[in-house]
Each structure stands twice: as structure tokens, then as C-alpha cells.
Design a binder for these strands. Structure first.
Lengths: 120, 120
DNA sequence: GTAAGCCGCAACCAGTTAGTTGCGTTTTCG
DNA sequence: CGAAAACGCAACTAACTGGTTGCGGCTTAC
């Protein structure tokens, strides 16, 4: 169980997000191949893959002399859960305030669209 | 427009997430008050609030001699969008693979439950 | 067997980060 | 006015991070 620290931390780096996208559309890529389409060395990619692996977002599978990586997006669910939780609590609080003070929604104002855009 | 780096980076720290939760249920807290319920100094909290502000997740409002902070969860939408995007692409790719190779799903295996838990 | 790939580990470096302390400024209160 | 409360800014430290290079160990191919 990786925990949110590792997941959000892994997602915070643009190179790591790039790697995730590459692995999403082409599963089974190797560190060397990924390094081929990135402006960094293989070892740097390997470190990023290590971080992603620690976060549980990627799985390594040795195959002969090369190591193939596959995306495992399960931990993203926990991350999204946390975000919707804090967002929900916020919306709830806002709703409560708005209901009580039908006028002078000081918090509403221009921040209206902040809570949650319709639907999704 | 803060960008995903700042948002995910802000979310990667447990203290910052704690602060966000506190602000979600009690909007308008000050840095000093937050420091009161955390094992760190006021200045450390102020730095965290600065990071959250840079990420667009929090807004400061000066009120006399104190500064009140309020949650602005809008950037979370972008973050969730990115996650659902990469998840969707992954699911799509997996689906395509599974359809083409009805047998010998080498990639399926034990990673079956990774894509997306039922329903949501 | 030897050479070529691919990989992992370790050392090292520069920049960032989380945290501290210290100090000066503004606002409120007696 | 003078003291207290809350703040912001700056300097400093320790630890982490993203990146590099160098090297040695397997695996494949000749």
C-alpha cells in the first residue's frame, strides 16, 4: 500500500507523467526505449520508474535481458478519492453557508465556479 | 493557471493535505491557528500555505491584523482530469488487446483488477 | 569463448524543500 | 503612547531530488 505521499509525489514530476502516458499507450516499454524518446539518460528514467513503482503506478517484469514496464493505475483511485472527499466536504460546507445566508454570499461571489463544475 | 506540477506537488505533502482538510471544514483559519494544531511553527505553516496558494488551491484574504485562508479546490478538477485521461487510455488499450487476443492475455494475468474497480 | 546489449548499483553534484530562528512591521487594545 | 498579537521577510541548515558518470553482472548473438 503505497500511500498518497508516493502517488502524488510521483505525479508531481512532468517527466514521470510523460512516462505514464507513454506506458499507457504502449505497455511493455523498457527503460532504454523510454530514454530514447526523452532528453535524459537511461539511469534517470530508471529512477523515475523506481519512483512510479514505489507509488504502485507501474510494474516491472523481467524478460530475458530486458525489463518491461506496465502501467498499474489502481493507486490513482485512492488519490481521486481523497480529492473528491476534500472537494465534497468543501461543497457541503459551502452549501450549508449558502442555505443559511441566502443573501450576501461573500464566499460565493466570483469564486462560484470553484467548487465543482457541473456534472463531472 | 498553476499547472499540474504545482497541484500534485502541493498534494504530495501530508502536512499540506492536513491543512487542506482543516480549511475544508473550517474556512477562514489563520496560519497561527493552523500552527496551533500542528507540530510545526507558524512560519512553516505559512510556507505550506504559500505552496498551496501557488497551486491555486487556497486563497488568502487580509482582515485587519490577521490573514484568513480559504480553500479553492478548482485546480483539483484539472488533476482529476489528467488521472481519468491516463486511466481511460489505459483501459482502452487493455480492452483493445483483450478483444484481439481472446486467449493468452499475457498482460492480463494477475494485474486484472488494476484497471478500474467495478462501477466507478 | 568473446563481443555487444541491457540492466542495476553506487558515487557524486546542484538545486529544491521542509523546517528552524531571528527580526522588523502593522494592527489592536489598555 | 506602549505592549501584545499577528504577520511577512530573510538567513540558515539538513535532507531530499533529479540528473549525471562510471562500472560490473547477466543475457543474447556470433
Amino acid at each position: 500500500m503505497p500511500g498518497l505521499n508516493e502517488v502524488f509525489g510521483a505525479l508531481a514530476d512532468p517527466t514521470r507523467r510523460e512516462v505514464m502516458l507513454s506506458l499507457a499507450e504502449r505497455p511493455g516499454l523498457t527503460a532504454s526505449h523510454l530514454a530514447g524518446e526523452l532528453p535524459i539518460t537511461r539511469q534517470a528514467v530508471a529512477k523515475h520508474l523506481g519512483a512510479l513503482s514505489t507509488a504502485g503506478l507501474v510494474t516491472a517484469r523481467r524478460e530475458g535481458r530486458e525489463t518491461r514496464y506496465t502501467l498499474t493505475p489502481a493507486p490513482l483511485v485512492d488519490a481521486m478519492q481523497w480529492m473528491t472527499d476534500v472537494g465534497a466536504e468543501w461543497d457541503e460546507r459551502l452549501e450549508r453557508l449558502r442555505r443559511r445566508t441566502s443573501t450576501s454570499t461573500a464566499l460565493g461571489g466570483e469564486g462560484e465556479g470553484a467548487g465543482r463544475r457541473e456534472g463531472a
